[in-house]
Design a protein around this nucleic acid. Structure first.
Lengths: 215, 215, 215, 215
DNA sequence: CATGAATGAGGATTCATTCAT
DNA sequence: TATGAATGAATCCTCATTCAT
């Protein structure tokens, strides 16, 4: 349920430390991005650096665990919203929840579409999220409240896009994302008759958009 | 017009090296982001590390020079489009140009809304770009082809948002951004009668969207 | 008493390494001056560079720790001598101890009156040393064995002066400083009736004697 | 006469550049010490870096040339004073001149007793200076105005010692050296009956007082 | 000759990760 | 098991010196 990557420890203090660590890491990553040092996270959690590596074999893995937690959280929201009465409203609420998550978490933003996403479990979680997004979208499509060629993956991708649109404003206008969410909603509900130009994505390929290349 | 930050050298070999350097840096930053080391850029340019610092007194300044070049390029596009016949089409073309620029350059994406933006010249260039965006938007607003409360800053912000939306797809679908540009255009041209929820931004504040905080 | 700047580590290996480090740094600084690289000190101590920075957060701090140790040592000598029977002899012994310390340590010489002295703890230690010097001098003045306008700060300043006078000879004549100490003692015990020309210093201002200036 | 180390150039612009360079280097070394970069000296002289190396094959050599100039200047003073009426006053004036030279020149201070002094021409100039100092001292000794075992080398060494004694005060009390010059004069004129403890130096050995040693 | 561009060794410092206690 | 000490690769940057223009 938690998306733990390492086998969950059994001793109670270990369990407690893992919790402490995840909370501290989540908070620190959220505030300062993926660049925070392990030392800082450890200090924030009140444990030694060694303990971090006992629970997570690398920084990468710790980051993945945090990201998984957030994805799972959003996934839960999506699942709940699947049973909502108004599919259009449900979609809007899903998007609002997703954007808010991103807005509150700097690392989450940095990770989306980046190498860390190569982690298989994170990939799987995103796939599940896209599926849930698709389910929400399908309901909205059926009701005709969104354009017919909109996919769940589009919706998930838009979350990051909306956050990123608002990003430069957020420090002074923490709610500015609502403006761009609204704009996006107007975009996806527009019935223009025209199809969107590029074939709809089904799944995220998850490779870096700017792959390395020799010189 | 050129956006050069350091005085251009006059000797032919220096000019050539500076060109080599800017090209290598642009290419490397574009592909790998702002994290690439100076050593790598130097190697890519076929010069010594010291030469980089002869031309640009710090990594920051080199990055700023590249960014300024790109911003100026986009600015030029905007200026040209200001005299186009169809204001709606002009706006679309401006946005397409901007998104394409971002799509091709990882560093450019990373720099937008981030600490590097603190560089005064880059800030000024972005302000100019927002002004140009506003001019383009104003013309479109007057013709009624975009919603009345859309600003030039909205438009500039959307560039990064659209790029970011498509980012995870770009390595396999390099043109995917067109899909989200279209979606955004549908959003900004929608005449819903409703105002967008958050007051429109006039200028970018340029502080980090995720300010540090203690633990 | 110990003059440690960083909290002393508790683990036995760390304590040992810190000792190794301080000894190596003291020795290397003493022999080669403040310019020695951290790498060299680390190698001399048989530890990695990182270990140096674990114990001392910067080269400056390491240097300060060494200097503080020496100043404290001299301070202890001064304190002991304060209870000696013969105030004149006590002053002489204090000066001999101080000059010897300087003679043995190149970095200590370089640090006196130089920017490193900006370190608040080192400044404070020097102030304390001047106070102790003043106490010793006061006793000698009362007995009439030194000129009436001689201050403790004069005495402390003379330590460096005497060392520096002898410096060029020391490699071939390690005891040459005794000659100039004697000369200085004759100077400070002289009862000429004339006052020394410049008002006596009370405390060391500690700014660089050759401040920068443009060209 | 100038102590040039490189053959004096013949073309008039080269002569002029050499002069410019020496003046700029003297000024810059004086103010900032031996650590100033060649680039800065070149800029201060208004010439290119290459020109510095055309005239002086290394920074070391440039420094030596400056030092030679100063030593020659002091030497000239000494020579003049040899014909003065009052040998005691002459010695005092020589010492005052020497200390003032040091006080005004940070590099000169740094160089005395340091590796740069290994330069043969500088060594020779110092030897000559010691000889001149000895001549002045001899006259004073004959008149009985200085202690009988004082040598010219003692006197020269004392110049640096006096400057160094006053060094920490000089930025706030530029004339403080006069206090310590007086103290030194009282020391060397004292007729205690006792001989100074260490055999008088005849010549300066000029090796670093803190020779390197392996670890 | 004069210039200043290019070089690259060297220096301080950071940080993920390993490992002895 | 938890700790934090040790490590060393990697990074940005400086500067004396060389050399093409």
């Amino acid at each position: 349920m938690t998306g733990a990557t390492s086998g969950a420890p059994s001793r109670s203090d270990a369990v407690r430390n893992r919790r402490l660590l995840l909370d501290a890491a989540a908070k620190t990553f959220a505030e300062r991005g993926v660049e925070v040092s392990i030392a800082e996270i450890a200090q924030c959690a009140g444990v030694g650096k060694g303990t971090v590596f006992r629970h997570f074999s690398s920084k990468e893995e710790l980051l993945a665990a945090i990201m998984l937690g957030m994805l799972d959280e959003l996934m839960d929201t999506a699942t709940e919203l699947l049973t909502a009465d108004d599919p259009g409203l449900a979609l809007r609420e899903f998007m609002a929840a997703g954007v808010q998550l991103l807005v509150r978490d700097r690392a989450f933003c940095e990770v989306v579409g980046r190498p860390s996403l190569q982690n298989p479990q994170v990939r799987a979680a995103i796939d599940r999220l896209c599926d849930a997004g698709e389910a929400l979208t399908a309901r909205a499509r059926e009701r005709g409240v969104v354009r017919p060629d909109l996919t769940g993956t589009d919706v998930v991708l838009l979350l990051a896009g909306i956050q990123h649109t608002a990003a430069p404003l957020l420090s002074t206008e923490p709610q500015a994302w609502r403006r761009y969410l609204e704009l996006a909603l107007d975009g996806i509900t527009a019935r223009t008759g025209r199809e969107l130009p590029h074939p709809p994505p089904r799944r995220l390929p998850l490779a870096s958009p700017h792959p390395d290349s020799g010189c």
